[in-house]
Nucleic acid binder design. Structure first.
Length: 225
DNA sequence: GCGACAG
DNA sequence: ATCTTGTCGC
């Protein structure tokens, strides 16, 4: 897909935080009249401590059948620091996305706006793309929220310390730990929830990222290291 | 200073 | 994320 080049990834901790503060101003969370027919999911595995294997799946929507996938293996330059995940995984993800055909929506493993500076990995990478992005995380990083009801589709708002709505906890599978959904860029909070639920089948995680995770693990195993 | 902390 | 098999419970 078409990728923009907004800034260098080779930056230190404080500069990375400054970049996040600047980029957050470009995030647009607003209703978008999209009718996605192709959606993508991104996930990574680590064949070695500093080697990352990013996989991008492409599924038709709303059928959710795997159409194809692309991947990229690259060197991981930075450690994992809560709040700076995109600087660690971004470079490899961007390369994998370059090998991916155009899609209408992209799902990420991690948060979007539900982030200390409103720029989780789904938002950050979303700014490099020309299509909407959504972040679906397995754990909360920032803010607080109660547990949603026990039925599929039940939700509970994620509130920042200031009381702003930054995402939702969503029960995608009955009586199974909820996931945390927040828009990355280019669509509304409500749409992020809507598409996340529609992209989820009988499992806890949305099918696009679930398939990417499975493939990433499988490819890692086939890679002889 | 203490606790929290995506993948 | 990663090191790792079986096993308890709905």
């Amino acid at each position: 897909m078409k990728i923009k080049d907004l800034h260098s990834w080779n930056v230190g901790r404080s500069e990375a935080i400054e970049i996040q503060r600047l980029l957050r101003e470009n995030i647009l969370i607003k209703e978008n009249p999209i009718r996605p027919s192709l959606v993508a999911g991104v996930d990574l595995s680590f064949p070695d401590k500093n080697i990352g294997l990013a996989v991008v799946t492409v599924l038709n929507f709303p059928e959710l059948e795997l159409m194809q996938y692309s991947y990229h293996v690259g060197i991981i330059e930075r450690p994992y620091i809560p709040g700076l995940l995109s600087f660690r995984e971004g470079p490899v993800i961007i390369e994998a996305l370059k090998n991916t055909p155009e899609v209408d929506l992209v799902f990420f493993d991690g948060h979007g706006t539900a982030h200390p500076r409103g720029l989780g990995i789904a938002s950050h990478i979303g700014l490099f793309l020309e299509v909407p992005t959504i972040g679906v995380a397995k754990k909360l990083l920032y803010g607080k929220c109660d547990l949603p009801g026990n039925s599929r589709g039940d939700i509970s708002p994620i509130l920042s310390p200031a009381g702003e709505l930054i995402g939702y906890s969503l029960r995608t599978k009955p009586k199974v730990k909820p996931v945390y959904v927040s828009p990355g860029n280019g669509l509304s909070m409500k749409q992020a929830l809507e598409f996340s639920l529609k992209a989820t089948g009988i499992y806890r995680l949305p099918e696009p990222t679930r398939q990417a995770h499975i493939l990433s693990q499988k490819l890692k195993g086939q890679l002889n290291l």
